[in-house]
Amino acid sequence: MMRLPRFRYHAPRLLSEAAALLADLGPEAMPLAGGTDLLPNMKRRQQTPAHVVGLRGVEALSARSGDPARGLTLGAMTRLASLEQDGQVLAAWPALARAAGLVASPPLRNMATLGGNLCLDTRCTYYDQSEPWRASIGYCMKREGEVCWVAPGSERCWAVSSSDTAPVLCALGAEVTLTSKAGDRRIPAQALFADDGMQYLTRRPGEILSAIHLPPPRPGEKATYLKLRRRGSIDFPVLGVAARVKLGAGGAVEEAHLVLGAVGSRPQAAEEASKFLVGKRLGDAEVVAEASRLASQVAKPMQNTDFGLAWRKQAAREWVARALRELAG
């Protein structure tokens, strides 16, 4: 049986206590939310924190405020399962409910949290392996090694952002609050992510992702999320397409936000494609084709997930087109 390494568990009740613990314990400590990412990583010895700061007792992290008209603030410990069935989220941010409902499997969604899914460790087929497996390749730069086996000449790590909710929150223009001993810091969701497989979050040491803020949807606004994976459940995305458009009264696109997941170390905003769509109609097949082509250019799949990278790149184009066609329909 794979077992956790030895660690010391801390159970703060207040957010301030949790932040203080993380600050005081330093890099040897990691926060634990739903456990569905950190615990497998610990069992594979990818992460071996001497101290685990359990967040489940921190009630503030399950708080909820606001509504679709004013915007909704969700505590980071909101379970994905409750998100996928949440009446308000389903009504106002159905793309987020769909993304949450496409994560992993029912029992895992009952455990996993929205904050945890945003902070999901980047994934790579050379990294998400047991300690002996990684020893047999001489490790990789993300943990204990020197080389990135995905691109051995590279100076950086190419591990993949594999969150389903992250691209959606980026496309929705959501914001997140990071809480530390020093106080709160509220940033756009997109700004939480960095284009580096190792330092993939801009979360600072000692900070806890505490809340997610969903902006109220505006009239004419629609969003969707499509996920590509081998099987109908459990699998991480090899591609996620989050799209939000605001359509004018005449049906033309006034604003577009396309974000691709699982094709880089962070959710990749397809800015050129998004700009191109402004003023165009989604019912126009040529518009969809050109936007898909442009969007797929930001997809930088590497050979470190399921499926071949050439196929994933090609699939990105098709999946963006499908997302846009869905929004047109």
Binding site: L4, Y9, A11, L32, G35, T36, L39, P40, V52, G54, R56, A81, P106, P107, L108, N110, M111
Partner: peptide, 13 residues
């Protein structure tokens, strides 16, 4: 009452 995977629940929780 919720379906969960016991392999990923620390006993301490």
């Amino acid at each position: 009452g919720e379906l969960q995977l016991s392999c990923l629940v620390p006993a301490v929780e």
